[in-house]
Nucleic acid binder design. Structure first.
Length: 241
DNA sequence: CCAGACGTTGTT
DNA sequence: GTCTGG
DNA sequence: CCAGACGTTGTT
DNA sequence: GTCTGG
């Protein structure tokens, strides 16, 4: 079986947990989505983990308008032949430095970019071999923001069902995040949302947007170690303990 | 030419 | 699909 | 990302 | 130690 060998311990990603406190209404406002259908439900999630379905924003292929779609976090490449081939393969992050060169990422980077709405992300600082402390990174002004995302669609040969999945692009850490790690997720400025979402093929991909966010606009706080367990959720995840 | 891969980052 | 290695 | 599990056999 | 599930 030609599957990429999952080698745990080496398959650990940078941005592996985030939070989305904003409700449907707030996200619609901030990301200029217009009125969302009544049927679209969205609850706050203070412990967003890989493999779960999360809202992302992209341009509708036909109308070109922004749309919000639920996708699975953990990109399954369109070239995957079977689900089992990529079982355990969680491409939850994509290194910005390799987006144009790597076969796996080039097409998604050219044609399938998306915004991932969030209000913060978590990083774990290793204190000793066994002890670790989670930190929550948020905007100083408390505003929601968007990770730079890439998505893909994969058709399950078993049942013909389409599965849409996404990954979060990472880059070098800014001065704030560097205290815990040397990488951080790419966060986009609202003025760049349109360029990131553009899905034509006859232009230069927006590589200039793949930069660490301004550290002085962000804050990092120690938070509740309970966030480590994905079953725990709620505002208390942010309690400074 | 074909076969096979294609991804990520942390730690003392 | 597309690139690398042999 | 972290938490939590991690095994085996016989039979017409 | 290493893998799966969320």
């Amino acid at each position: 079986m030609a599957l990429p060998q999952r080698n745990s311990g080496t398959l650990v990603a940078m941005c592996g947990r985030y939070l989305r406190r904003s409700d449907k209404q707030r996200i619609a406002e901030v990301f200029l989505l217009g009125k969302l259908p009544e049927s679209f439900a969205l609850s706050p999630d203070y412990n967003v983990a890989p493999t779960t379905f999360q809202p992302v924003i992209r341009l509708n292929r036909d109308t070109g308008a922004r749309e919000i779609v639920m996708m699975r976090w953990g990109l399954i490449p369109y070239l995957a032949k079977s689900a089992t081939e990529f079982k355990g393969f969680s491409a939850i992050n994509a290194r910005a430095e390799g987006l144009e060169a790597k076969a796996l990422w080039r097409v998604p980077f050219q044609r399938r970019r998306c915004l991932v709405p969030a209000d913060g992300f978590y990083e774990w600082k290793r204190l000793t071999l066994r002890a670790k402390q989670p930190y929550a990174y948020q905007m100083r002004d408390g505003h929601p923001f968007a990770f730079a995302g890439l998505w893909d669609a994969w058709k399950d040969p078993a049942d013909g069902e389409w599965l849409q999945t996404f990954a979060i692009v990472t880059t070098k850490a800014n001065e704030l995040a560097a205290e815990v790690h040397d990488r951080m997720p790419v966060i986009l400025h609202p003025r760049d949302y349109d360029r990131w979402l553009e899905r034509g093929e006859t232009y230069e991909p927006p590589v200039d947007l793949l930069r660490p966010y301004e550290a002085d606009a962000m804050r990092a706080d120690t938070c509740n170690p309970a966030v480590g367990n994905v079953r725990n959720n709620g505002p208390e995840m942010l309690n400074n303990i």
